[in-house]
Every structure is written in structure tokens, then in C-alpha cells.
Design a protein around this nucleic acid. Sequence first.
RNA 1: GCGGGGUUAGCUCAGCGGUAGAGCAUCUGCCUUACACGCAGAGGGCCGGCGGUUCGAAUCCGUCACCCCGCACCA
Length: 883
Amino acid sequence: MSQLELPTRFDPKDFEERLYRAWKEGGYFTPEADPERPRFSIVIPPPNVTGRLHIGHALVNTLQDILVRWKRMSGFNTLWIPGTDHAGIATQMVVERELAKRGIGRREIGREAFEAEVWKFKEEHGDAIVHQLERLGVSCDWTRMRFTLDEGLSAAVRHVFVRLYEDGLIYRDLSMVNWCPQCETAISDIEVEYEETEGRLWHIEYPLSDGSRRLTVATTRPETMLGDTAVAVHPDDERWRDLIGERVRLPLTDREIPIVADAVLVDPEFGTGVVKVTPAHDRNDYEAGVRNGLPQIKVIDETGRMTAAAGADFASLDRFEARKRVVAALEELGLLARVEAHVHSIGHHEKCGTIIEPMISTQWFVKIEPLAVPALEAVRSGRISLIPSTWEPTWFNWMENIHDWCISRQLWWGHRIPAWYCDACGEIIVSESVPERCPKCESTALRRETDVLDTWFSSALWPFSTMGWPEKTKDYETFYPTDALVTGWDILFFWVARMIMMGLRFTGEAPFQQVYLHGLVRDEHGHKMSKSKGNVIDPLEVVDEYGADAVRFTLAILAAGRDIPLARNRMQGYSAFATKIWNAARFAMMHVDTELEDASRIVREDLRPVERWILSRLNATTREVNRALSAYRFDEAAHAIYQFFWHEFCDWYIEMAKPVLLEKTGDRKALAQARRVLLEVLDRSLRLLHPFMPFITEEIWLKLEGVEPSIMIAPYPIAEEVLEDSEAEKLIATMQQIITTIRNLRAERGYAPKDRFRVVLQIPDRRSARAFEQNGYLLLDLARLSELVINEPIPEGAHRDHVGGIEIGVELPRKEISPEEIERLQKQIEQIEREIASTAARLQDEKFVSRAPAHVVEGARARETELRQRLEKLRQNLAASSV
RNA sequence: GCGGGGUUAGCUCAGCGGUAGAGCAUCUGCCUUACACGCAGAGGGCCGGCGGUUCGAAUCCGUCACCCCGCACCA
């Protein structure tokens, strides 16, 4: 018996680290690439290489680990590939900040030295986040760790780039882009976050060239007027029709600009119906400029300062300073008609918060429609499912309105675009390897493109580049496509959409079949976590405080598909659950012999009802957990097992088994059975729980001396029909109700725990009566009775009740009934009367009886009978009490 | 403007056509020999308003109100 002991004190710190090391060293996370076995594979959403673990990482990786451990135990050859993302802008920003602390500027040291610094930083701090993940118990295969800038992944990036270029899906063009003057790079449309802002609308007067009148235009950005190259009106607008083709004098400059007609740009209902046109600094104006053949005058440069083209008075001023000066100058000239408050949304760079400057720039783009259409179709046809499916409308909406993807970044950290320019003839060479000479003119004066790719370009290849693609590796053959992708909805378009597009195009397959989009972790009141609000929960801190298992379980049981309101008291609650498991295991081990190890399989027919009942309940729980996990309902799976383990196994089964286990009954056969079942239920429960709470389940399970060396490779329980037993379930449920009724009576009437009652049960059904005779001792302990008798007359004056066709008489010691208790009885009676009335009314409704399904009608009839019997008992009790 | 979500016990949320649920919080007893991180018991809700479908509606449909999230527009 000695090996089955657990220390009384329970502290996750005693074993978390030890067990994790043992798993890792045992190679359980590392599958063989065996194409014959059924497999389950998944790739991690790679965290930023210099990032710090936050609660969102804890969530996404807990959910993946639950799936992975569940599948692995269920017999699948399971691979979970971990890795990190080089995270272009984010990492460059971090390292720049670090260098700045040492007084070093990025530009001073130059590109090569800077890149070296980033690599150095990556080597020093890069894997911190990965080791932090280990604290959670994640079972990813660390031997297959990848980084988006690894040579293999970089080769995949070059390969894809070249093929897309050759297929005409990557082009280089002068176009309007979102420019971040802080980061000094172009960014894609989805990296711009818009925010409603209270701004101003300045009305400026532009005099006609002949001086005859003035046109008033309105703008939120007065400084851009310096780059105006036209004024536009609607072609059908009567007010201005005769002015089309005339010219205005652009104030603060010496230029004259035309009045053009543009039906797309101008809404005659809005403002004055006259629009200033700045083709170089506004997306709509840019397009209007193209339509009307207008010149583009760039008045703001890449750092957000005014250019020489803005005029001597404004050149080199910051754009916001220039705004003030322009407004002041206009006011002085009497050309500022008025200023209004105006709410509009302003785009910010999501990474640094800087206001985006729309700008004309030469960039590389992916022509997106040919990629988006198959991706849209893959979801429409069900080849890929989004879970929860509420994301599908959003998906279609986005895919149908998608714009070309600007993929070039003017950064130093990332995949350098594999393009070279021939200085001699201007040819552009796009190639996977470094070209020696220009294929057109043979010149060797080639300059490599300095831009790097958007980080998400390499992330888009992640599910297959991590497996060695484009090489036909064994891993790729075995584990691609992956089965599931788990990630947050916030990167549905940044990442998931692009993986699907690239996967479909380059591997011919959807990179995964199911996408589970988890909610965002928020604080207990549903607010976003942020440092400034002080409501951030640090996963490592709570793992220290409550243990990894409690944190994981909390995240899982809250993951219902919506945003997750996380509170510390929840984690505290589930750490209590871990303690409960520990103590239940301790209890079990106190009563289980090692000799039971070779006990033969349980023969169900021999078991007492209480054992058959708990096995049946466990079986139902097993079915529910598997079902819920298949549907990504982590909350339902966790809840089912929590409910079973605590409120059925601990609260009822263990208590019901005690009389036998403590050898009060002296029944040797029953004792052996109870021990065997206790062990069986504990073992299966631990295995069911393992994906959620890997550490504590392993720590206990190892003491049970199973066949396998670790619970993580023990078979996951599946429901077995042979364990179902509705008869035992019904019997025990009735007993539970009777026990609860008596306990309730004891509490409400204020009897002490030591007071024991004699109870008489009237059981008309002979079979049930016999079952109660044989198992009635359960009531003795759990309801604290002095005696239980079946089918004798209920004595005069006994308290009466009625449960499931059984009449109960409880002989209570003499005691005054409190007025509160009488009031409570009356309230109960009224409530039951109301319920009887409504049930009876339904049953008298001919339509209900004829149209409702038979079992519903039957249920109502039974209910009415039951209610009437209870009512009668309650009335008797009330009458007795008022004597 | 387009699309989506929410409104259920004090709080945070499940349930989504057949007798209102959980966790936490609250109240009352218990240190009952696995566990006071526990045990037992209790109180608390006309399931946002109004219509409709149905024998029957938190549950389906419509509508209104308030809240939230994408996307687009925003001179």
C-alpha cells in the first residue's frame, strides 16, 4: 500500500517542473513522421520572438494543448509545431529602443550592424517567451521549433515570392499607400486602425482667377491645400456648372488650379459641394486626380515634414505645425470663412499609434483577388469551417471587398525582397538566388531591393514552411495539411486569411480544416486589459499563485466562443478544484490495495447499484466530454467533468461508498467491488481531466501504477454502452432526492446533526421496494437516520413528504415549529398550487393533448400526480404543526 | 451605410422550442475519521420592451430600445 500514498499538503510547485522535464525527456511531445498512422497536427500561432507572455498566449496555447493532449491520448500520431515570428516592425522597434538607451541610433550604425544587433537581441532574449510557455505545460514538439527567419522558411518565402511574381500576382507600382511617418515605412490597409476623433472642419475661400467671386471649400487638413492641384464640383450641380473649366488662385501659393467636374468624388449634398483635390495626400483625391489627369504635388515627406514644394514659408515644418501656420496665414488674408467642429475617424498605425499619412509611393503589392476568390470559396463550400460559424458573414464580407496587399516595408528587419535592379538597363530581376548579371543587358551592376516583406507574408506560409516545404519532406508528407488552427479573431484577416490563400495556391490544399477563433481575454467586467487601467493579469504570476492546472482549467471553462471575462476568483475556485481532486485521490488511495492491480475486469452484473450508478454517470460524462471537445466547446467539456468529479463522484459516490469502505457493513465482496470501482473511476476521471489539468493528473496517476509510463500516453476514455445503467441511475437519483428532502427538513427545522430520525418509506413498486431494502443502509448514513423501515404504516404525527412515487414519513423528535418555518411551508404550498393549476390547465386543453408529443403529455400527467401528492403531504404537515 | 454580436440570479456567463442553470458573492448550520481550498441546507430571476408563429417561446420570426465589435464613408 505504501506506493499509493500522497502527501497531505498539496502544492503544484512540488511537481510541475519535474513532470514537464520528464515528459520532454521522455520524448512524448515528439512524434515519428509515420504516414501510416492516423495523425493530428497543428501549428502554433507563432508569438513575437521578443514578446512577453501575456494572458492571450496563455489562452490560445492552453486550448491547443487541450486538443493536442486529447488527440494524442485518443491514439493519434500527434504533432504540435512551436515557433516564433520575427515580427518585423515590432521587433525593430524594441531593438531600436534598446539601442537608444545606449545612445546608439539605428541610422548611425547602418543597416548591417543594426541587423546584427537584432540577431544578437534575438539570441539573448528571443526564446524567453517559449520557455514561459512551458510553464503552462504545453506539449509542443520543441525539437521541431521554427523561426520565420530560419533558412528553410526564408527559402519558402523567396520561392513563393518568385512564383507569385512570375504568375503576375506580385507587381511593383507607384500608388497611394498608408505611410507611417514615425516608422518611415508603408503599411497595409489592415494595419491601420481608425478612431473616431473630434476634429475641425476649416472652410477656406479660393478666389476665382478673374477675381469675380470666391469658392468655399471645406477641409479637415488645411496643410494639404498646399498640394492642391484642382477644385472639384459635381457635374450636375447647377450652382457650379458654369464654373467647370475655369481656374482658381490657390491661396498661399502662386499657382492657379482648374475647376474640374467629378461625380465620384463630389457629393453635392455635403458641405458647399466644392472639394479641394490633393492627389498626393488623399486616397480619394488620388483617384480623382487619375480620372482628371491632374498632377500630384507631394507636400509632405516620409518623415511627416513639409517639402520644398509646400513653399518657402512652410518647407521642413512638421505637418501639424504646418497646419497651424496655414490656418493663421489664411486667417490673415481673410480667406478663412469659418471653422466648425467635426467628428471624423483618423487612421493610426496599430503598432506605434502615429497618425497615418496617405502618400504616393512605389511599393510591391500582391494582386489579391485571384487568391481571395478560392479562399472565399473554401469557406463557402465547407472545406474549411470557421468555429464559431458566426464569423462566416464577416469572412465573406471582407473577402468580397478586399484590396491589393502592400507587402513591401521600408524596414531593416525581415525577409529582404528577392528583387534586383539593373542600373544599366533598368530591368527588374526577381529570383530565388542571387543573380550574377542582368539577363537582358548582361550588366553586372545589379542593386538588390532594400525593402523587406511584411511580416505576415512569411506567417502566411507557416503551416507548410514549418514542415520543410517546398521540399517534399517526410514531415510535410505526414503532417500536412494540419487539422486545426486555434487563434484569436483579431488576426483572422492578418493571418488566417492569408494562410488559406497561400496554402490553397501553393499546396493545393486548405492548410487546415477547422479554424477555432477564441475570444479575447478581458477583465472580470468585460473591459480590455491594459497597463494603464491596471487590470492586466500576468499569466506567470497567476501560475505561480494558483498553479498551471488551475489557470488552464479556468481559461478552458470560460472559453465559450465569446470574449472571456477572466477574474482571479475564478482561478482561485478552480485551484480549489485541484485540491479537491488531490484529496479525493488521497482518500481513494487510503482504501485501495496494490493487490487490486491484478483484479480482473469488473463484471457489471455483480456490482451493487451504487457502483453501477457511478460508472454509468462517468460514462455519460465521458461521452459529453468527447462530444464537447469535438465541437471545440472547451467550456462544456470542462464543466461536464468538473460537475461529475466534484458533485457526483466526491459529494455522492465517495460518501455512499464509505459505509462499505470503512468496513462498517462487513461485506467482503462489496468491499472488494467498491475498492475496484473507486480506483476505476479515479483512473478514468484523471485521464478525462488530463488535457485540462496535465500536472496534477499525472502526479496522482503515476501513483496508480498503470501500464503506461505516463498518463499523457494512456488511452483517453471513450463512452461504452455496457456501462450505461438507467435503472441504477433512477434508483440512486430517487435516493438522492429522499436524502436531500430529509437533510432539508433537518436544516430548516433546526435539528442538530446528532439528532437521528426513524424513517418509514411507502414504496408501492415491489422491485423498487426490494432495491431499497437491500440498499437502504445508504440512507442511514447520508441522511443520518436511526432506523429505516420499508412499507410499514407511517405513524401518526410523522412528517410526511413524497418523492417519485414514494411516500416518506419522518418521525421527528418533539420540537416547536418556528413561525418562519410555517411561513415557508405556506409559501411552498402556494407555489405548488400554482404549478398544479397551470399543469392541469394544460392537460385540459384538448389542443395540447392532441398535438403535443406523447411523452410530453405523459410527463405533464406524471408531474400533476406527483405535485398533488406532495401538496397533500405538505398540507398534512402544516395542519400537524398548527395543532 | 454594410455585416455581426449582446441584453437571463448581486457579479460574470451557459442554456437557444417542452417543469429557469453554473461559478463567484449572500444567508443558516456544521472542525462528520479525503478535503474548512471543506460538508450540508437556504434565499435570490414575469430570461430588455412590444407584437407574431406554435398546443407550448429565454429559446423561432418581426419590431423598438440600449450596449458592443468589424468594415466602409467622413471635403
